[in-house]
Amino acid sequence: MSEALIEATGLEKTYPARNRQGTPFRAVAGVAFRVHRGEAFGFLGPNGAGKSSTMRMLAGVSAPTAGTLRILGLDPVADGRRVRARLGVVPQDDSLDTQLTVEENLLVYGLYFGLSRRAVRTKAGELLAFARLEDKAGERVENLSGGMRRRLTIARALINDPEILLLDEPTTGLDPQARHVLWERLFRLKQDGVTLILTTHYMDEAEQLCDRLVVMDKGLIADGGSPRELIERHVTREVLELRFPPGEHEKIGRELGEQVEVLPDRLLWYADDGEQALARATELGIRPLTALVRRAGLEDVFLRLTGRSLTD
């Protein structure tokens, strides 16, 4: 096994109450994980699962309330500056410097890392090419599209040649085409040996990018492994999706037993052979409005693990 870049055990984050009547909020309730050099590691979970709080701790800008966290062998609280010097951070909101041009954003950011002006100029040129923004170098940030901004934010995070790149919801809010462009860029980074850590609530993104991931829910890790392992462990090979008129899902779901998950708009029937399941349903006299057989994915893993769908 290769070297562990990040090691967390019993990691917790509790935010103090906002006022006297309020109660403290425990966003991360004790999680443990290891991330190895060169891998792409994902935190999967719905909004409010504790992903962003975990990412802020990993970025060295939020002190854990309990537990231990080592990043690159260092303590991110005591050695925050030295840790941050070797990280790249892509926040969910791009938070680019709107008063500067595209290229200046990269240049100024590089100076924060103590890079020399010459070095930062060369690097900015390379990164503009990487982000496919060469012809936008002199443009104000305001005039960029959402996809371009996100690519610029990623380019900015790479200015110090980070060993670890943290991406919080990298493709949220982007159109499908922009997402695919971004995934391709991130895949290239991974091949260049950069360790990627990302949060997402998109299944397809997790499946595309992550070697390993953990499923988070209510501040805890429900399970972890490669996408394939997780699918094999928790769900069957195929899923039969059945739709009925509104209001009938509950009743029919109860009839079919525990291999079936009831969602507000459809039933999911987990089976190794979906067609066979459909045949059985027909035998039982069930007449769905629509029926669809598909391969099981991470969405289903999450559903089985938490009893809730990701988009709740």
């Binding site: 800008v61 990280l87 938070s95 008063q99 950011y109 924060y112």
Partner: peptide
Amino acid sequence: AFDRFYHSLIVTPVT
């Protein structure tokens, strides 16, 4: 508040 400039500043070695 609007540019979140300081938020992106403190993830660098700037304290």
